[in-house]
Write a protein that binds this DNA or RNA. Structure first.
Lengths: 199, 199
DNA sequence: CTTCCACTGCACACAGGTGTACAGCGAGAC
DNA sequence: GTCTCGCTGTACACCTGTGTGCAGTGGAAG
């Protein structure tokens, strides 16, 4: 990692700050405009356009970040040789803060940018379907829906809870984990046991 | 019901047609404008404003319709003396087409009209919580979440599925029913049995 | 010290949606 | 037949957000 010039570094800092602030702001107000984002980042609107030529560029970059973080978690979890239901618990535990941070994408998924977001989410969908498929093959997950659909519904619920009133505190994470386990066909006793075994 | 004058009747017809068309159109395109709604209803934009002074009025009327239909179904189901899980199946079966028709509200719930919609949905939330509470008291529903929250999550899932790709055909209704039953803590075998017993 | 350049601060053009005003028209009401 | 009034058609004013243009400023780079 070569020492960047001070100028290049502060430019990256500005860019990152805009992204971070945009994510937080859009999380509370999905229809916030570029002006509001700029103001929240302590920058002029024009500057935002210097980094992201259009609003779509900003959203795409945010989505790419989300995909990167989620695939990283999923890849690690998938690599473990734990039972699928235990892996799922591990996955949700680590996905939770990410899902909460990027909860905007749930709202943005419909509407103008839906196409773009859906496209970028492809890899995540696949890894997720693999995990659920593994669980179904192992007999720990229900089979009333094909893996591709069951996985969508299950993590849809996780995102939905991360975007709801329960998102604060430990309650949300616990609720999301148990709920998703149940709908994956894991018996209640086993589900409760799995979440209380967590460190 | 006194025989309405022909004029009054056609005025009501126009109003109803606008509502029906708006519901269908917004279902596919939640951000459709008043102009598009008017065109789809075979009417001029100005006429829509004659019936609904503002877009909010239209949305509110739509929401009131949804609440009326849902409370009607819920009241009937709640009146039966069946076990809570069977009542839930009956409820979802009858709610399904309604949820699909009014899927717009899911998208509109966030954003400008969220406040209004959420307020009008109060009665539905209560009836729903009562049903879930009954199931928890009877030991057929899980208790990892209080009834008020569990009911929200459960019918949130139903609406989410009604708003997804699976909404078409019998698959969606079946998936929504089983998924919600599972997350309510009903064992998989029982859940499957309940849905296949349906006429 | 001079050059570079990220950021500022204001300007503008443009698109799209909302809600209103007003002069009709045509079919049902009287 | 005349009146009423729901609907038409067109025009407006207004607001909000997007994306662009350009002169200027201040601090790091050379």
């Amino acid at each position: 990692m070569p020492a960047k010039s001070s100028r290049a570094r502060s430019m990256i800092e500005t860019r990152d700050r805009i992204l971070d602030v945009a994510l937080a702001l859009l999380g509370e107000k999905p229809d916030a405009g570029m002006g509001e984002i700029a103001a929240a980042a302590g920058v002029v609107r024009r500057t935002v356009y210097d980094h992201f030529p259009s609003r779509l560029d900003l959203v795409r970059t945010l989505t790419e970040r989300a995909v990167a973080e989620m695939t990283a978690v999923l890849a690690e979890v998938n690599a473990s040789d734990a039972e699928a239901d235990a892996a799922w618990v591990e996955f949700i535990a680590r996905l939770w803060p990410v899902a909460h941070r990027y909860r905007v994408l749930l709202a943005l998924r419909r509407g103008e940018y839906g196409e773009t977001i859906h496209g970028l989410l492809g890899p995540v969908d696949e890894l997720l379907a693999d995990l659920v498929q593994r669980g179904q093959d192992g007999g720990v997950f229900a089979q009333y829906l094909p893996a591709a659909l069951l996985s969508q519904v299950a993590y849809g619920v996780v995102f939905a809870i991360a975007d709801s009133d329960l998102s604060q505190g430990t309650l949300g994470a616990r609720a999301a984990t148990i709920t998703s386990l149940l709908m994956l066909g894991v018996p209640e006793t086993r589900a409760i046991a799995l979440v209380t075994d967590q460190p």
